[in-house]
Design a binder for these strands. Structure first.
Lengths: 143, 143
DNA sequence: TTAATTCCTATCGTATCGATAGGCAATAAA
DNA sequence: TTTATTGCCTATCGATACGATAGGAATTAA
């Protein structure tokens, strides 16, 4: 499962992508439009700021803005950022990963072999979609 | 992420599938071969028994055995059994599902649209592999 | 009877998760 | 310069889920 935090992050970034190039968007607007708890969202946006995805402006007309062009931010990247990995099990990450506890040697684990395939398919989908894609269901699905 | 419990369940079932038709397999054998905490495994196998996947025999030469033929048990089914769903977000399940908290109406949620596609691809892979498949990585991958 | 084995329920410690509190810092407008 | 507005940071909280174990009852073959 994706954490609630990851989902909020993606939806907030989608909102900022829709306003890309229009200056900063106040927190309250995102909160109202996306139905996300305000305080929690500040934590999430600060984190995204530290990762370089979002810039912020304080004060009277403050708010947040997406830094990269929406076409440059893949949903897969956002999930990796928030969750660390796209894989369903620790040992099935393509990045340097922890071993699963109480498992067999990775080379012998049938479950791992399967989960690697799931990971690759998932990554293929999530890395083909960016924040610029409005209706994500309609994006071309070409391997 | 798959829970540890789900992973143990799959690996235990794979082990029983390998011994299919050879009578019951004692817990200790599964524990030794699969490196799973014994007490925890009894809980898992009891649950799988209640779901009709496993039968058990008590007493001196007791143990567990898979009930359906290994070819009839899809990994996707096992995961649905243990975790309730294959989807990465609650609202992206194809079965009757809960709504996500603090979200938009489902029809408007771009994230949901994407996650439905991920779910379908994942299900396609996991439902094409059964407990009978030895090296899961080599199963044909034909849409 | 005895040893081996599974079954059931309760419980435990920990980690994570979602969320909020509360105060500090910055900024623009009055 | 004052003030209202807005974001920033750290700590913390309550709830829940998770992984695992304890302890004993029930079953069965030797």
């Amino acid at each position: 499962m994706l954490s609630q935090k990851s989902r909020y992050a993606i939806r907030a970034l989608q909102h900022l992508a829709d306003r890309y190039g229009q200056g900063v968007v106040p927190l309250a607007e995102i909160v109202a439009a996306q139905n996300i708890p305000a305080k929690f969202l500040t934590v999430i946006l600060s984190e995204l700021g530290r990762e370089g995805l979002v810039r912020s402006q304080r004060g009277r007309v403050g708010g947040y803005a997406l830094i990269p062009a929406p076409t440059e931010v893949r949903i897969g990247d956002v999930i990796r950022l928030m969750r660390g990995s796209i894989a369903l099990v620790p040992c099935a990450s393509r990045d340097p990963h922890e071993h699963c506890e109480h498992c067999l040697p990775e080379a012998e684990c049938r479950l791992r072999a399967l989960m690697l395939r799931v990971r690759d398919e998932t990554a293929r989908i999530l890395d083909a979609v960016t924040l610029a894609d409005g209706n994500l269901a309609l994006v071309a699905d070409k391997p």
